[in-house]
Amino acid sequence: MSRFAQVAWLVMRKDLTVEARSRELLLTTLFFAVSTVLVFAFGFVRDGRAVEDAAAGILWIAIAFAGTLALGRTFERERYHDVLHALLLAPVDRPAIYVGKLLGIVALLAAVEAVVVPLVALLFQAGLFRYPLRAAALLGLGTIGFAAVGTLFAAMLVRARSRDVLLPVLLYPITIPVIIAGVRGTAALLQPEPDLAMAGAWTGMLVFFDVVFITLSLWTFEPVMTE
């Protein structure tokens, strides 16, 4: 394993170990995402029938909101005890720390999605499992794109006093294209006659966004973390 990959793995494993002990982020994001889906289900499901295309939008709203909650806390563990400086003092490529944090958040959101996706499928009678690989690709790529920008902004704001307010203000305008691509791609899969070509096009768009966002984040993480 290269040193870069090794550092990323170490940081992700540490984050997941801490999360497994505290379950702080998992429980709050899961509770929030499930609550969001349930509230929307009461509004959009009448006589057992959901409003057309609502399921895709609600699924991505739940992921985006829960993701914002998780991203707001992802660097808190480093900030509380100033561990961030100890990480930055390690003789490693600092972008590897970013990748480790990103992988930790993506793993956490994947766990949330493992609960939220079946819940949306059940409550909205949405065929999310008709094309499981295509749906998983859309969800995975969308989550990575959203988390890539969010992890960078969370790192940028770690020393800012009003970081909880600033994170969504900065994050949503940048990640709106990712969320739109996710919603439209998922909606294409959920139509009575699934539009696979359209879903594929939006998946391709998500790949493009992911490449751009991750490249920019790797490029800017080092200067962002240097005071």
Binding site: R77, H81, D82, V83, H85, A86
Partner: peptide, 13 residues
Amino acid sequence: GLLAHELQLYPEL
């Protein structure tokens, strides 16, 4: 090597 005033340890670990 830096020992800062904040101890830079993960309390959960």
